[in-house]
């Protein structure tokens, strides 16, 4: 049976979409703040995969200057994603730091409990 789409060639893209949706779903649905940050990470990683995938060409070798190599994969997205990873790490670090402070202040890291406390404050 022929599948409507060619899975192997687009496998990476499917992974991107699945990761993206999983990550996004966790961010939205989970009440635990740490889990939200984890979801955010998964979401970001899906984009890293997207960039890395697009840089690869059929039969392309690593981009090292050598007379024998005619076809290079594009190195630029790798570099871009290095930057993006750094940004992602920083975001995670900051997010976790905030969560630590939130736990100090509220005694919980569950979103709905925090919301309840905030409502009581107001």
């Amino acid at each position: 049976m022929q599948l409507p789409v060619e899975i192997p060639g687009l496998l990476n893209y499917w992974i991107v979409i699945v990761l993206m949706m999983v990550g996004f779903f966790v961010v939205i649905s989970h009440g635990n703040l740490v889990k939200k940050i984890v979801g955010l990470n998964v979401f970001q990683v899906s984009v890293f995969v997207l960039y890395i995938t697009m840089s690869k060409i059929d039969g392309g070798a690593a981009p090292i200057l050598d007379d024998a190599i005619k076809n290079y994969s594009n190195p630029l997205p790798h570099v871009l994603i290095l930057t993006a990873i750094v940004v992602g790490v920083a975001t995670t670090a900051l997010g976790l730091a905030l969560i630590v402070r939130i736990r100090d202040a509220y005694g919980t890291i569950e979103d709905d409990e925090i919301t309840n406390q905030e409502r009581d404050d107001a």
């Binding site: 996004f24 703040l33 979401f43 402070r101 905030e118 404050d121």
Partner: peptide, 15 residues
């Protein structure tokens, strides 16, 4: 509340 406001902004901002 500033902490939670910042974290919520962080999550949405990163998205």
């Amino acid at each position: 509340n500033a902490l939670t406001a910042a974290l919520r902004y962080l999550i949405l901002g990163t998205v």
